[in-house]
Design a protein around this nucleic acid. Sequence first.
DNA 1: GTAAAGTAGTTTATTTTATAAACCAAAAAA
DNA 2: TTTTTTGGTTTATAAAATAAACTACTTTAC
Lengths: 95, 95
Amino acid sequence: MFKELNPLLHSELRLGVMSILISADSADFTFIRKQTGATAGNLSVQLDKLSQAGYISIEKGYRGKVPRTTCRITEKGVSAFQEYVEALKSYIGKG
Amino acid sequence: MFKELNPLLHSELRLGVMSILISADSADFTFIRKQTGATAGNLSVQLDKLSQAGYISIEKGYRGKVPRTTCRITEKGVSAFQEYVEALKSYIGKG
DNA sequence: GTAAAGTAGTTTATTTTATAAACCAAAAAA
DNA sequence: TTTTTTGGTTTATAAAATAAACTACTTTAC
């Protein structure tokens, strides 16, 4: 009856991150932080989890002298997100 | 940008319970347990939380000699569910 | 009739997760 | 040159989900 909800995506902050990345192609730490309203610590932890799952890639570099962490969604991430949305529909209907 | 996800509803099992009750009007413990696949212990705890939040009402009675716990969604529960679904859309788009 | 197994749950303990607090390093500003 | 700001990470704490253990009663099998 109900499809399983991928627990890695069924988290407010991680879902927000994925939602941003699925339409933005790439986004940096600060941008994601502002859009989601998350604390830096929490965001750092959750980005790591998404990265370790292979759902996003994280590139650390510099913009001038300022460190800059850029995130991108992977193919695996895109399909995990899509499956999650499908699963959700078994709970909330077509809306 | 993103709407807040009511943490009481943003839980796989509790969301499943609410999803059942929003279309079934009333359902008993055993039925919900089978539909969701939850363990009895987990279901008991989560039903309590929904009940304490005023999202469902729980009526304990007997069917013959066998105890029977019947759940119903409340008005408050219906609107919380609807708001949750609206909030979700800010993350997943129209789908 | 009584021992064993099943039904319908609750309570408590454990694990996992999310979040917050504390911290670090470098750069810019005062 | 001390202070503040930016851009984070690491570690500790709080909250949540889940599982395990238990209770109470009923039915079935001997």
